[in-house]
């Protein structure tokens, strides 16, 4: 039985296969509409999420399966003090596959160690968010037609932004990737990502505070939100939340075929006037996310 806790759990070949299946789903939706008939997916969301949870639920429903679950810790037995281990043992008796989001780092790994059914990590605090990464990878593949030879700018909260950590880990497998890590010094990428991923794989990277400095070099600009829920101190959040705002004016310096991505939700880091720009790919990205999650559910349930 396979789980998806960290994007590293999937080989390059497996990722390629998932993207191929997702592309096939996009082209032949009808063919997949009853693949998961009689199967149930449980969503255990201990912290708020709209799109990830709904994306998983939509994915399972489009595969002909059913969904159950909870969407906040207050409405779950966690409020009574139940451990994650006990919760997944119980839910494993009700569902065929479990999607978990929890604010604590490593929570999904703990769930997978105790579960009798496949576990998908839908975000464990500021740590990993592998299905967002799969979403990002299929978006890059669909929009740029390649996963190698890319200059990738990542901007905003690189410290707590779990999507960023997973994306860097995943893209480090491909050839000729260069990262431009754009953040204020308080939100710089953690050292374990630099040493364990970037330096270990000889991936070149530049750290900068200035979003405009390298904008003209980028093939992909991945914007992120400064997340209020990751701060213990509200003053720090208020000070940093408006640090980067991408707008039409700044984009004049960018390549014509730049691909602008964002895991969403955005607050104000991408001005609304960018939405109409043909380089804006973030709403398409959200849609691709559902298809790659459909492909993942099929893989983990071992359905051909």
């Amino acid at each position: 039985m396979k789980h998806l806790i960290d994007i590293k759990d999937l080989s390059t070949q497996e990722i390629e296969d998932l993207i191929k299946v997702a592309e096939d789903i996009i082209k032949n939706k009808e063919k997949y509409s009853e693949k998961c008939k009689g199967k149930k997916l449980a969503t255990l969301f201990y912290e708020p999420s709209t799109r990830t949870r709904l994306s998983f639920e939509a994915a399972m429903l489009e595969l002909g399966g059913n969904v159950l679950g909870f969407s906040s810790a207050q409405t779950s037995s966690a409020a009574k003090g139940e451990s994650i281990s006990d919760t997944v043992k119980v839910i494993g008796g009700y569902a065929d596959i479990i999607v978990i989001r929890h604010p604590k780092e490593g929570s999904a790994l703990v769930a997978s160690m105790k579960s009798d059914v496949p576990i998908i990590n839908a975000g464990d605090g500021g740590h990993n968010h592998p299905t967002q990464t799969l979403t990002d990878l299929i978006t890059i593949q669909m929009e740029k037609c390649r996963l190698s030879n890319l200059n990738i700018g990542i901007c905003g909260d690189l410290k707590f932004g779990r999507t960023v950590h997973s994306l860097i880990t995943a893209m480090s497998r491909y050839k000729n990737i260069k990262f431009y890590l754009i953040s204020p010094k308080e939100l710089k990428i953690p050292d374990y990502i630099k040493t364990n991923i970037l330096e270990k794989n000889n991936i070149s990277y530049i750290e900068t505070k200035d979003i405009e400095e390298y904008l003209g070099d980028l093939d992909i600009l991945y914007m992120t939100r400064v997340q209020k829920e990751r701060f213990f101190n509200e003053d720090d959040y208020i000070r940093l939340k408006d640090y980067y705002i991408l707008n039409k004016e700044k984009l004049k310096k960018a390549k014509e075929d730049l691909c602008i991505m964002h895991p969403l939700p955005r607050v104000n880091e991408i001005a609304v006037d960018v939405d109409e720009d043909k380089r804006a790919a973030y709403f398409k990205q959200a849609k691709y996310g559902k298809y790659i999650r459909m492909a993942l559910i099929l893989k983990l349930l071992e359905i051909e």
């Binding site: 451990s83 994650i84 281990s85 929890h102 604010p103 604590k104 780092e105 490593g106 929570s107 790994l109 703990v110 464990d124 605090g125 500021g126 740590h127 040493t195 364990n196």
Partner: peptide, 21 residues
């Protein structure tokens, strides 16, 4: 000692550290 780590709340979880370097 990471306050965001699951080990800070989950009971009966062994504290496992792995040599990475």
């Amino acid at each position: 000692k990471n306050p965001r780590c699951i080990t800070s709340i989950e009971q009966n979880l062994p504290q496992i550290c792995e040599l990475t370097d």
